[in-house]
C-alpha cells in the first residue's frame, strides 16, 4: 500500500475520529476461479465434510484484493478512510466467484 494507511470500518464512522469530508462510494472487485487441483481436492473433501481450506484461502486472498482495489480508489479520491464497508460474494459462473467490497470514502480528522 502506498502513502498513508487508509482506515477502514464497517460502521458509520471511524470510532474516535471525526468525519470532515465525504467523497462518495468507492468499490473494488475481483473474479476468481478455483484451479483444478483445488477443485479435485475439494471434491474428495466433500465426501467427509468439514472445512475446505483451499477455498477458504482463495476467497480470503480475493477479498483482500477487492479491499485493496477499493482502497486505491479511495486514495485517488483524496480520502484517508472508508466507512460502512460491505462485502458481497456471488457465484457468477461455474467454478468462479466474484468478491466485491464497497464503502463510503471519507476524510477523517
Amino acid at each position: 500500500m502506498r502513502g498513508e494507511a487508509v482506515l477502514l470500518s464497517n460502521t458509520e464512522e471511524i470510532p474516535g475520529r471525526a468525519i470532515r469530508e465525504h467523497h462518495g462510494v468507492v468499490s473494488g472487485s475481483t473474479v476468481r476461479a478455483k484451479h483444478l487441483g483445488r477443485d479435485i481436492m475439494a471434491g474428495l473433501k466433500n465426501l467427509v465434510g468439514g472445512e475446505l481450506k483451499g477455498y477458504t484461502e482463495l476467497l480470503q486472498e480475493a477479498r483482500q484484493e477487492a479491499l485493496e482495489r477499493m482502497i486505491e480508489e479511495a486514495q485517488k479520491a483524496g480520502a484517508n478512510a472508508v466507512v460502512n464497508v460491505r462485502f458481497q460474494t456471488s457465484s457468477v459462473a461455474q467454478g468462479a466467484a466474484e468478491l466485491f467490497a464497497y464503502g463510503t470514502a471519507v476524510t477523517v480528522g
Binding site: 482506515l7 475520529r17 472445512e51 477458504t56 477479498r63 479491499l67 464497508v85
Partner: peptide, 12 residues
Amino acid sequence: AGLVVGSVVVSI
C-alpha cells in the same frame, strides 16, 4: 479502529 474479517468455507 480498523476492519477485521474472519471466514471459513465448509462442506457437508
